[in-house]
Simulated scan of single mutants.
Amino acid sequence: MLRTYKTAVVAALCSTVVGTAVAGCAGDSLDNWDPLAPTTQKADAGPISGTKKVDVAGRSVNVSCSGDPAKGRPVIMLMHGGGDGLDKMAALQKTLGKKNRVCSYDRLGAGASDQPDGPQDFAVTGKILTGVLDRVAGDNPVVLAGHSLGGLIAARYVPDHQDRVKGLVLMDTTSPTMVDDITKAIPESAKGPAAEVRAQNLAIFQGQNPEKLVITDGKVRSAGNIPVEVIQHGKQYLAAIPTYGQRLEQAWSAGQRKWLAVSSGSKLSTATDSGHYIYVDQPDVAVQAIERVTSQVAGE
Results as ranks from 00 to 15, higher is better:
1 M>R: 06
4 T>L: 08
5 Y>H: 14
9 V>W: 07
14 C>K: 02
14 C>P: 01
21 A>P: 14
22 V>A: 14
23 A>S: 03
24 G>M: 07
34 D>Y: 11
35 P>L: 03
38 P>G: 05
40 T>L: 12
52 K>E: 06
54 V>L: 13
59 R>H: 10
59 R>T: 07
59 R>S: 10
61 V>T: 09
63 V>G: 02
64 S>R: 03
65 C>R: 00
66 S>N: 06
68 D>N: 13
68 D>P: 05
69 P>Y: 01
69 P>E: 12
72 G>S: 08
74 P>D: 08
76 I>E: 02
80 H>W: 05
81 G>W: 12
85 G>I: 01
86 L>M: 13
92 L>K: 07
95 T>R: 13
96 L>I: 12
96 L>D: 02
100 N>V: 01
101 R>S: 00
102 V>Y: 01
106 D>T: 13
109 G>A: 07
109 G>K: 08
110 A>L: 09
121 D>T: 15
124 V>M: 12
124 V>H: 14
124 V>N: 14
128 I>F: 07
129 L>D: 02
129 L>P: 09
130 T>E: 14
131 G>H: 10
131 G>W: 12
131 G>I: 13
134 D>A: 10
135 R>C: 00
140 N>M: 03
145 A>R: 06
147 H>N: 10
147 H>K: 04
148 S>L: 08
148 S>I: 08
150 G>K: 07
151 G>L: 12
152 L>H: 10
152 L>M: 14
154 A>I: 08
156 R>I: 09
157 Y>H: 15
158 V>I: 11
160 D>I: 00
161 H>L: 04
163 D>K: 07
164 R>E: 07
168 L>Q: 09
172 D>L: 05
173 T>G: 04
177 T>H: 11
177 T>G: 02
180 D>A: 13
181 D>I: 00
182 I>G: 05
182 I>D: 04
186 I>A: 00
187 P>I: 02
189 S>A: 13
190 A>W: 06
191 K>M: 06
194 A>H: 06
198 R>M: 03
199 A>M: 02
202 L>P: 11
202 L>R: 04
204 I>N: 00
204 I>Y: 06
206 Q>R: 14
206 Q>L: 08
208 Q>A: 09
209 N>T: 04
210 P>M: 06
213 L>M: 08
215 I>V: 15
216 T>H: 02
220 V>L: 08
224 G>N: 07
224 G>Y: 05
225 N>Q: 15
228 V>P: 13
230 V>Q: 11
231 I>Y: 06
238 L>V: 12
238 L>R: 10
243 T>D: 12
246 Q>T: 15
250 Q>T: 13
253 S>A: 14
258 K>P: 13
260 L>C: 08
261 A>T: 13
263 S>D: 01
264 S>A: 12
267 K>L: 07
270 T>S: 08
270 T>L: 03
276 H>V: 09
278 I>E: 00
280 V>D: 11
282 Q>P: 02
284 D>A: 13
285 V>P: 12
288 Q>K: 15
289 A>P: 11
290 I>D: 13
292 R>S: 14
293 V>Y: 05
293 V>N: 10
